[in-house]
Design a protein around this nucleic acid. Structure first.
Ligand SMILES: Nc1ccn([C@H]2C[C@H](O)[C@@H](COP(=O)(O)OP(=O)(O)OP(=O)(O)O)O2)c(=O)n1
Ligand SMILES: [Mg+2]
Ligand SMILES: [Mg+2]
Length: 915
DNA sequence: ATCCTCCCCTAC
DNA sequence: TAAGGTAGGGGAGGAT
C-alpha cells in the first residue's frame, strides 16, 4: 500500500486496484527520504500481537513502592484527584490534550472569522453548472510528533510518540505516534505501557500545546492563501473546495500547498484529492505519510469495493461491529444490503449514510464552520468525591469554566445539561489511573426562559440539576455541563433592550436611539415586505433566506439525493418563509410557484386555512401569521423590528384606556383587544398607528378615530420612548384616574423617569392598603427574596417598578400579543384583559376579582402545561407577580403547584420546582 | 409531523 | 503515576 515514496510530479491518478496512492509531487527539499516500503510490511507483521488495549497486567495499580501502605488507608491512592487539588478543573484543562483539540475550533473561529468573509457554502452545482466539484483534503502527518521532532532530525526515523508519561508501566495515553512507531503498532489512544511493550525503544516527548497552536495557525494561513473556500476540520486538517481555483490542476495545487506547509512549519502534510469530501478524505488516508493521492470519479467504485467499512468516516467501533455481525466488512459487501434494510437496522439517516458512502456518494458541500450550537465542559478523569461538599465545590468550578467559555464566545444559553458518569455497580477501580472506568452515563437538562452566561445562574441551575440524580457522590467518576439554545450575547442584550417586557419597561431614555435604529439603511432596503416579517420579531429570516439558494453546510451525508436536478437550485419547500411568499407581488409569486411546480399554493392555503389574496399582499393578520419559517436560526440581525410592532399595540391600549375615561359609554365589547389591534395590524400592513403623543387624546371620539393611518414610511414608526407616551397621556387623564394610578405607585418605587414634577405630585394617602403591603408575615416568605424568582439577577425594573393597574393592562396586552393569539395562554390573557376591563368599567374595584380570575385561569393552564411547557408557566408566574404582593403571590403559587409537587415527583418535578 | 429529552456514536 | 474533551449528528420514545 505504501510504496509511494517517489516525489516527482506524476499525474497518474490511481494505479490499479489496491494501490491507489500516489506521492506525486516535487520533492519538498530534503524530506521524502522516509522509507515507507518497509513500513508497510512492518505494519502487517506486527498486527498479529495480542491486543494492546486489553490489559492483563494486574499489578499496575500498586506498583509504587508505598502503595501497600496507601492501600490499607483507603481506596487506591488518588493523589492527583479532585480530592487533592482545589483547582483541579483549571489545572486539568491546562494539561488535557483532548481539551486542547476539542477547544481548538473555537479559537480558530475567533482568529479566522474575518477570512471566511463572503463565502458561506460552496456554490458549485447551484447554478446548474455542470462543472464537477473538486475537493482537497489536507492533514498534517502525525501532527503532535511532527511539531516536536522538527528540532530533532536525528529522531526522524526513530519511533517517537507524544505522551504525558514515559513510565513503561503507566496508563498515560499516547497522543500521537510517528510512522516508524506505528510500524510497531503504536497508535494514538493506547497506554504508554502497551506502547513500550510493543516498542521498547519508543521515544516519548511531552506535549507542547503552544507550538501546536502556532503550527496550526501557519497551516491555516497557507490554506487560506491558496483557497478561499476552506472548511476547518481540526487543528491539523481541512477541506478545500478548489473547483473554481485559478490553478487548473488540483494535484499541482495540492503539491504546492504541501511544499509550502513543509517549508514554513518544518512538518509534512498529506493530501487527498477527489470529487467529494468523502473521497478526498479517504484519499488522504491512502496518501499518508507525506504523500498525496487523487481519486478520479471513474476509480471510485474500484477503490471502495475492497475498502474495509471501518475506514469510512462515520463508521466507528459500534457500527463496525454491528456490520461485522452481519458479515459486512467491505464497502462492496455493504452495497449488497438494501436501503430499506439499512433503514430498519440503523435508522433513516444513518442508513442513508451507509448506503451513500458505500457507493462513494457524498453530497455535503465545503462550507465555513457553523455557528456553534452548544458550549460545555466536562471532566471524566481524576474525579473522586468523598462527600457532598467535594462534589459541590467541583461543580461550582465547572460552572465557572463554562461561564467563562460562554463569555469568551460572546454567547448565552437557555438550556443546561448536567452529565454525570456513575460507576457501574459491578465496576471496580478502573484500569486506567484515575480514569472513569465502566460507567453509566446520566444526564438531566433544564431550560430557563432567559439566556444567560452568568456564573451564579449556572451554579444555581447546576446545583438543581445535580439534585435530580440522587446519586451517591462516591460513585461519581465524571461530570460535565453543557449549554445549548445559544443566543449571541449581543442579540440577547438587544432582545433585552427591544424585545422583552422588561426592556419595554426599562427603555426610558431611548428616544433618540429608537429612531436611529429603525432608520438604518438595510432596513429601508428591506422595505415593505419585510415589515410583515417584523411581526414575527424575526426579520432576520428574510435576510437569511433571500441570500439565495443557501444550502446549509452539510454535515449530513444522508441528504444525498439533491443538487443535481433543478430542485437543488431552490431552497427546499420547508425552508421558505411563508410571510415573505405571501407578501410578494402576485406575478412574482406565481413565477416562483411555477418553479416549485405549484406546490406553493398548497403550502400556503394549508397553513393559512383561509382564503389568501396573493395579489395585494395584505392578507395576513397577526394572529394568522404562520410560524412557517423552518429556518429559525436567530442570527445576529433580528429583533431590530420587533418592537416596532409592540408599540402600536401599547399605544392602542393606552388610548383605549384614555378614552374610557372620557367616554364611559363605551361598552365592554369595544374594549376588547381583538378587533381593533390585530386587525389593524393585519390590514394596514404598511401603515401604522401613530404615536400617541402626537395625537391629542382629547380629540378622539372613538377608538377608530384616534388611530390615524399614515404613509408607510417606517422610519418614524417607533415612538421615541414609551415613558414619553405614558407621561403625555397621563397628564391628560382626568384627575380621578391619575390619582388612582399614582396611588398604587408608591413614591419610592415610581419609575424615576416619571418625575413628580411632570405629573404633578399627588400624595399617596392609602399607600399600602390596596396593594396590601403586609408582607413578611410568615417566616417562609422571609427566606425568599424576589431574587429567587429570577433565574438571574432580578431586572432593575422589578425593584423600581411597582405595577399599576394601568401598567398591568399594557403588560397583559403585550403578553397577549406575544402569545401569538393562539393557544391557551392567549385565551387566558384575553379573558383576563376583557374581564378586568369590564370590572373597571363597572367602576368598582374589580382588581381583586380580576386577580383571582386570572389565578383560576392560571391554575387550569398550569395543570394543562405543567408536564411540558415550563417556560410558559414561568411566564405566567412572572405575570402574576406583577400585580400581587409578594405574600399573596406566594400563596397563589403554592396553591397552584402543591398538587403537582405531590402528584409528580418524576422528571418534571425539577421543572416546576425551578419555576 | 415535529418537538423534546436522554441517551449513544463519532471524529479529531 | 496523569491530565478519558468537545461538539455535532442522530435514534428511541414520549408529548403535542
Ligand atoms: N486519539 C487521539 C487522536 C488525535 N489526537 C491528536 C494528536 C494528533 O497528532 C492530532 C491530529 O490527529 P490525526 O488524526 O490527524 O493524527 P496524526 O496527525 O497524529 O496522524 P496522521 O498522520 O494519521 O494524521 O490530534 C489525540 O491526541 N488523540
Ligand atoms: Mg494528522
Ligand atoms: Mg487530522
Amino acid at each position: 500500500m505504501h510504496e509511494n515514496t517517489t516525489l516527482s510530479i506524476i499525474e497518474e491518478p490511481i494505479c490499479d486496484s489496491g494501490k491507489y496512492c500516489e506521492g506525486t509531487m516535487a520533492e519538498p527539499s530534503g524530506i521524502g527520504s522516509v522509507d515507507k516500503s518497509s513500513a508497510g510490511i512492518e505494519v502487517q507483521s506486527s498486527s498479529g500481537r495480542p491486543s494492546a488495549l486489553v490489559s492483563s497486567y494486574c499489578l499496575d495499580n500498586h506498583d509504587a513502592k508505598e502503595s501497600s501502605n496507601s492501600m490499607i488507608v483507603g481506596p487506591p491512592n488518588h493523589c492527583h484527584s479532585t480530592l487533592v487539588d482545589p483547582n483541579f478543573v483549571e489545572n486539568y484543562f491546562k494539561n488535557s490534550r483532548l481539551h486542547f483539540i476539542g477547544t481548538w475550533r473555537n479559537r480558530y473561529r475567533k482568529r479566522f472569522s474575518i477570512l471566511s468573509n463572503g463565502f458561506k457554502y460552496t456554490s458549485s452545482n447551484l447554478h446548474g453548472s455542470s462543472r464537477r466539484t473538486t475537493v482537497i483534503h489536507v492533514d498534517m502527518d502525525c501532527f503532535f510528533v511532527s511539531v516536536i521532532i522538527r528540532n530533532h532530525p536525528d529522531l526522524r526515523d526513530k519511533p517517537v510518540a507524544v505522551c504525558h508519561s514515559d513510565n513503561p508501566r503507566g496508563t498515560a495515553e499516547i497522543s500521537s505516534a510517528n510512522y516508524p512507531a506505528r510500524d510497531y503498532g503504536v497508535r494514538a489512544g493506547i497506554f504508554v505501557r502497551d506502547a513500550k511493550a510493543l516498542c521498547p525503544h519508543l521515544v516519548i516527548f511531552p506535549y507542547d500545546f503552544e507550538s501546536y497552536e502556532e503550527v496550526a495557525d501557519q497551516f491555516y494561513n497557507i490554506l487560506h492563501k491558496h483557497c478561499n473556500k476552506v472548511q476547518a476540520v481540526s487543528c491539523d486538517e481541512a477541506f478545500l473546495d478548489v473547483t473554481d481555483s485559478e490553478v487548473e490542476d488540483p494535484q499541482i495545487l495540492a503539491s504546492v500547498i504541501r511544499k509550502e506547509i513543509f517549508e514554513t512549519t518544518g512538518c509534512t502534510a498529506s493530501a487527498g484529492i477527489a470529487g467529494s469530501l468523502l473521497m478526498a478524505r479517504l484519499a488522504t488516508r491512502t496518501a499518508k505519510p507525506n504523500g498525496q493521492c487523487y481519486i478520479p470519479l471513474e476509480k471510485v467504485d474500484d477503490y471502495l469495493h475492497e475498502l474495509p467499512i471501518k475506514a469510512l468516516p462515520g463508521i466507528g467501533h459500534v457500527l463496525g461491529e454491528k456490520l461485522k455481525k452481519k458479515r459486512v466488512q467491505t464497502c462492496g459487501q455493504l452495497r449488497m444490503i438494501s436501503k430499506e434494510s439499512l433503514h430498519k437496522d440503523f435508522g433513516v439517516k444513518t442508513g442513508d449514510m451507509l448506503w451513500n458512502y458505500s457507493r462513494g456518494v457524498d453530497n455535503r458541500l465545503v462550507g465555513v464552520i457553523q455557528e456553534s450550537k452548544s458550549i460545555g465542559a466536562e471532566v471524566n478523569w481524576g474525579v473522586r468525591f468523598n462527600d457532598l461538599k467535594d462534589s459541590q465545590h467541583f461543580l461550582a468550578n465547572l460552572c465557572k469554566e463554562v461561564s467563562l467559555r460562554l463569555q469568551g464566545c460572546g454567547m448565552q444559553g437557555r438550556t443546561f445539561t448536567l452529565k454525570v458518569k456513575k460507576r457501574r455497580n459491578d465496576a471496580e477501580e478502573p484500569v486506567k489511573y484515575l480514569g472513569c472506568g465502566d460507567c453509566e452515563n446520566l444526564s438531566h437538562s433544564m431550560t430557563v426562559p432567559m439566556a444567560t452566561d452568568d456564573v451564579d445562574v449556572l451554579r444555581r441551575v447546576a446545583a438543581q440539576l445535580f439534585g435530580f440524580f440522587h446519586i451517591d457522590v462516591k460513585d461519581i467518576r465524571g461530570m460535565g455541563l453543557q449549554v445549548s439554545k445559544l443566543e449571541s450575547a449581543d442579540t440577547a442584550k438587544q432582545g433585552h433592550e427591544r424585545n422583552s417586557i422588561r426592556s419595554w419597561l426599562t427603555s426610558v431614555s431611548a428616544r433618540t436611539k429608537g429612531q436611529c435604529k429603525i432608520s438604518s439603511p438595510d432596513k429601508e432596503h428591506a422595505s415593505r415586505d419585510s415589515e410583515k416579517q417584523s411581526m414575527d420579531g424575526n426579520p432576520d429570516q428574510l435576510c437569511t433566506n433571500s441570500i439565495g439558494p443557501s444550502v446549509h453546510m452539510g454535515t449530513n451525508p444522508s441528504t444525498g439525493e439533491a443538487h443535481l436536478n433543478q430542485d437543488s437550485a431552490l431552497p427546499p419547500l420547508c425552508d421558505l418563509d411563508l410571510g415573505v411568499l405571501e407578501s410578494l407581488p402576485s406575478e412574482i409569486f406565481s413565477e416562483i410557484n411555477k418553479m416549485y411546480g405549484g406546490k406553493l399554493v398548497n403550502l400556503i392555503t394549508k397553513n393559512e386555512g383561509r382564503s389568501v389574496n396573493f395579489g395585494n399582499s395584505l392578507c395576513m393578520t397577526s394572529h394568522e401569521r404562520v410560524e412557517g419559517v423552518i429556518n429559525e436560526e436567530k442570527g445576529p440581525f433580528n429583533s431590530h423590528l420587533a418592537s416596532v410592532n409592540e408599540i402600536p399595540i401599547v399605544n392602542e391600549l393606552f388610548k383605549l384606556e384614555a378614552e374610557k375615561t372620557l367616554d364611559r359609554d363605551i361598552g365592554a365589547e369595544n374594549l376588547l383587544l381583538k378587533s381593533s389591534v390585530k386587525e389593524k395590524i393585519g390590514q394596514e400592513e404598511q401603515c401604522r398607528v401613530e404615536k400617541v403623543q402626537a395625537e391629542p387624546v382629547s380629540g378622539a371620539g372613538s377608538s377608530k378615530a384616534v388611530v390615524s393611518i399614515s404613509v408607510p414610511d417606517k422610519i418614524d414608526l417607533m415612538p421615541s420612548s414609551l415613558s414619553q407616551v405614558d407621561v403625555s397621556v397621563l397628564q391628560q387623564l382626568p384627575e380621578e384616574l391619575r390619582v388612582d394610578i399614582l396611588e398604587v405607585l408608591p413614591a419610592h418605587r415610581r419609575p424615576e423617569y416619571v418625575s413628580d414634577a411632570a405629573l404633578g405630585h399627588l400624595p399617596n394617602p392609602r399607600e399600602s392598603s390596596r396593594m396590601g403591603c403586609t408582607e413578611n408575615q410568615t417566616g417562609m416568605m422571609d427566606s425568599l427574596s424576589s431574587k429567587d424568582l429570577w433565574v438571574g439577577n432580578p431586572p432593575l425594573w422589578v425593584e423600581k417598578f411597582k405595577v399599576s393597574k394601568f401598567r398591568m393592562l399594557n403588560i397583559l396586552a403585550e403578553m397577549y400579543y406575544r402569545s401569538g393569539s393562539t393557544g391557551h395562554l392567549s385565551s387566558i390573557l384575553q379573558r383576563t384583559i376583557s374581564e378586568y376591563r369590564i370590572s373597571l368599567d363597572s367602576s368598582n374595584d374589580g382588581w381583586d376579582d380580576a386577580i383571582s380570575c386570572l389565578c383560576d385561569l392560571l391554575k387550569q393552564y398550569i395543570r394543562l402545561k405543567i408536564e411540558t411547557d415550563i417556560e410558559e408557566i414561568y411566564v405566567c408566574f412572572r405575570l402574576l407577580r406583577r400585580f400581587t404582593t409578594k405574600s399573596k403571590f406566594f400563596l397563589q403559587v403554592f396553591d397552584i403547584i402543591f398538587p403537582h409537587l405531590q402528584a409528580s415527583v418524576g422528571e418534571n418535578y425539577g421543572g416546576i420546582f425551578h419555576v
